[in-house]
Amino acid sequence: MKSGSVKLALYAYVLLAFIFIFTPILASFVFSFNSDRFPSLPLGSFSLKWYVTIFSRPEVMEAAVTSIIVSLASSVLATFIGFCTAYTDYRYQFMFKQAYLALAMLPPTIPLVIMALAMLSWLAQIGLSGQVISIIIAHTVLGAPFAMAVIRLRLNDMDPSLEAAAWNLGASEWRTMREVVIPFAMPSIIASLCLTAAVSFDEFAVAWFVSGLNKTIPVVILEILQGNVDPQINAIGTFVFLISITLIIIAQALMFKGRKEVSAE
């Protein structure tokens, strides 16, 4: 009896932790369909007016286009850099490898507001600030460590003798890369594209600093938050959430599938 109630209390505690985590996410979803400008309980009536509002604002649509361009370009660049780094770590031992890997994994440990200031001042110095390309450059830096981590995890499952076998059969290193390594890593490459696109799609601090007039969606949200706040934030947020979560589910499914294939072999 006693252990039963302890067990119940423990499970209730976990539930409470998840309620804390999901309260803001669910609240913003619910309020995006709520008519009140200053939402509270009890809820107002069901309404789509915040969705109508965002679709009637050209700057939101422009920001959506910028966001999509930025996340596509930076995910491709970050995944390319991440793949090269992961492969280097997988295959080679060399001097200063620790420093090389530190360089690869360090960016997420620097607060974004500091990254933003550093990026802004440097990009302004070399004449690259205030453009779409500025955001792409910055998001590539932020995304590359995640790309590297995801792809490295997959390469872990690759038997080192696989490459050696291809070389012995007369394939060059480049051909082996093209026909053995890349196909093997493909699920993780696509997962990395999704993951880094999602990172870029949500990032606001660096984008806000370096973007100038080319706003992305999170920058627009930040500006609404600074000015006349209203629940259209929730409507935009719901869209962003749907896009990001789709990307993440694809990424997770691919990684999971990859692992299952390996364990089946």
């Binding site: 803001p24 996410i25 949200i221 959430f241």
Partner: peptide, 10 residues
Amino acid sequence: FTSYLVRVYA
């Protein structure tokens, strides 16, 4: 992967 800004607003 949900916007931090949106969660803060919530």
